[in-house]
Design a binder for these strands. Sequence first.
DNA 1: TCACGCATGTAACGCGTTACATGATTGA
DNA 2: TCAATCATGTAACGCGTTACATGCGTGA
Lengths: 183, 183
Amino acid sequence: MSLRHAVLGLIVELDGASGYDLMKLFEISLANVWTATQSQVYGELAKLTADGLIEVAAEGPRGRKEYRATDAGREELRRWLVEEQPRPARRDGVLLKVFFLGQLEPGRARAYLRDSAALMGERRDGLAALQEEVTWGDDNLSLYGRLTLEYGRRFFEMRKEWAEWAEAELARHAAPPEDADHA
Amino acid sequence: MSLRHAVLGLIVELDGASGYDLMKLFEISLANVWTATQSQVYGELAKLTADGLIEVAAEGPRGRKEYRATDAGREELRRWLVEEQPRPARRDGVLLKVFFLGQLEPGRARAYLRDSAALMGERRDGLAALQEEVTWGDDNLSLYGRLTLEYGRRFFEMRKEWAEWAEAELARHAAPPEDADHA
DNA sequence: TCACGCATGTAACGCGTTACATGATTGA
DNA sequence: TCAATCATGTAACGCGTTACATGCGTGA
């Protein structure tokens, strides 16, 4: 149940927001941390309201509803942060493919890893560019957003290096070490 | 739709397996790559059979059904490996918490990161020990399983180092740089 | 004989994705 | 005026989790 706390957390930090505001934040700030669709966000807002963790603080033009956290909501966010420990759900589409790469010809398998390394390099560069671009404020979301962005950069860097290493491993196996000591 | 291909892939690689066999493989070999529950596995076997990608090749004692891949199934696995590219679903419970760590007292936030670093170190050591223990064969599953295991080790190592870095960053912000040039 | 392990299945519920559906405001 | 943007919602479907339910075979 993490979407719930993502939505609640944003409302607490911003001290009030609409579903539309939240969507933009999910697309930008939380893009590398937790994704959510529009229907999920509005659905969760309804549930959080029903459970008394947030409330409609004001209504604006075009049916806009500005939600704010209740005391119970702030308490629940804190409880989640302190008490609940997430078990990492290990599920990775790229790794799954690697696991079955033996079904392809060796050349194709290595090409897959090479492409993967290149893609990870691009992603890393994208985040690195973002880090340069953004001017960070002194607020919480800036400070902690900076930490998660750096995590993303390190993540892609790690994957790139791993893919390069894996490709070399395959090469080592494909070409038996005939030249190891006589060349 | 990756569970489908995980199940199909295992059946192809093993050249025949029962749901029970697959469960053990999900618990051991695929634990760090793709998780699945028992009901998922049996459900997927039924679907794959209905779609003609696998078939019951033999029935054993205790109602055991040995599935084997059909030609269509082997073709589908190949297609998935070559054509389909997974978009990485970025969703990470630990990062989500970090994003909202500003809601805690600075001391507690840093403690969270320290604990996280310690946990990641343990996980890394666990995988490293596994790497030492296991005697690897020459089959595909051994070769590619070794690659994914190394990925897991690097992943935890990266997270450990990141958590330590993040904790230091918070320390830097909590204690303003009063001693920077006069000490 | 009896416990453990092998072996398969179903049902209920919640989360996530995609698509559909509608309408108000504002600024060029 | 009209297009873009703001803004909210619903419905259908599939995947994932938990719990329930059942029964056979084998070895100590």
